[in-house]
Computed example of a mutant assay.
Amino acid sequence: MAVTRSAEIGLTSGLAASISSTEGAVFFVKAAPAAAPIAGHLLKERAAAHALQSSVPAPRLLWTDDVEGWHLLLFDHVDGTPADLSPGSADLAGVMEAVASIARPCTWPAPPATRKIGGLLRVAQEHLAESPTNDLEPLVKALDVAAFDGDILVHGDLHRDNLLAHHGRVQIVDWSMACRGSAWLDVALLVPRLVDAGHTAAEAEQVAALVPAWADAPGEQVTALAAVRSLFASRMAEVGPQHLTAKRRWTAEACRAWVEYRTEL
């Protein structure tokens, strides 16, 4: 085997690369030391990959092992580049089709989405404790974590780098944050990414409507989640690593713009 292309592995250290065999077959490998911060993410991704149904547009896990203190995962190679989420992009239809296709019953004991939402809420509340006059406080208090409960497969971290587009088809990668929850949750988490990519909030919701489950999203809880995510991203921009500060501020601003649109409806 020979490494042909390295790739970003996200926010933590590890190995992510395309490799080719002497016969020309191409695969994708992810690996990390068992003691590394990313190890838990790889184990969660392995569990999810083992359980994904064939209808899910995602690369198949071909082999996995723990060798010499390393976790190794070998996937089918997926041709594609990060999806263009900007207005008018030819990738948008494929992205939303892929998102709609994963809204199926979760077939393994994935962690509940309520745990993820609860974590966002706790950080938002910490941020409010330092600025109690924040105008988002009433919306944060309106968030009902139970509203996000459910038995539907949720990717939990959809953004352009996890959506690989190729000739109109989109594959969804990196399932390390997969959980089970409400069918519309992935769409709600994706909308701020669309705003960040240049859509107005109204345009982003028009794109969201391409996923049928979006019609069932409870309006008050969608708005509350946007407010919580804005405060969460603001807080993480303050306390997280410096190289992520700008990206998190953009997310906070996108969520804030979405809140302002929804509260003016």
Rank of each mutant, 00 (worst) to 15 (best):
A204E: 00
P111K: 14
W184M: 04
Q125G: 07
L163P: 11
I172P: 08
G10Y: 12
D161T: 09
V195T: 11
N134T: 05
E126M: 15
G24W: 07
P105V: 12
A51P: 02
T22C: 09
V26L: 08
M1Q: 13
T200V: 01
T245K: 15
G156Q: 11
L143T: 09
D84R: 14
L85D: 02
C255S: 08
P192F: 04
S86M: 13
G168R: 10
G168K: 13
L128I: 12
L143C: 04
A257M: 02
V99D: 05
I38M: 03
S182N: 09
S13H: 01
A215W: 06
L61D: 11
L74D: 01
E203P: 03
L158Y: 06
Q53C: 09
S55M: 07
K247N: 04
G24H: 03
D186E: 15
L244Q: 10
H41T: 03
A98H: 05
H155R: 09
L11R: 09
R248L: 09
A246S: 08
R104M: 11
V154Y: 07
P132A: 03
R248N: 07
P82G: 05
R115I: 14
S18K: 13
W108Y: 11
A202W: 01
V187S: 04
R249Y: 06
G181W: 10
V228P: 01
A233H: 05
A165M: 15
A32M: 00
L120D: 13
K116W: 04
G14P: 03
A100H: 09
D65L: 01
A142Q: 14
D135W: 12
A147G: 01
L92S: 01
S101K: 05
A227I: 04
P82M: 08
S176H: 13
S182A: 15
A51N: 02
A178I: 04
D161M: 04
D161E: 10
T22N: 06
A110H: 04
L136A: 00
Q242L: 15
T251V: 12
A197K: 04
T263N: 10
P212T: 07
H159G: 04
P192M: 06
G40F: 10
D144N: 09
K30S: 03
G198W: 06
G88A: 11
L163S: 08
D84M: 12
V170Q: 09
A35S: 10
K141R: 15
R115T: 15
I38Q: 00
G88F: 08
L153N: 02
C106E: 01
F232T: 10
V173C: 06
L244F: 15
V170W: 01
T12R: 13
K30Q: 01
F27M: 12
D174Q: 05
H77L: 04
W184S: 05
A183C: 14
A124N: 09
E45M: 01
S89Y: 10
A31W: 01
S230A: 13
V154M: 08
Q53T: 08
E8V: 09
Q171F: 11
V191K: 08
L265Y: 04
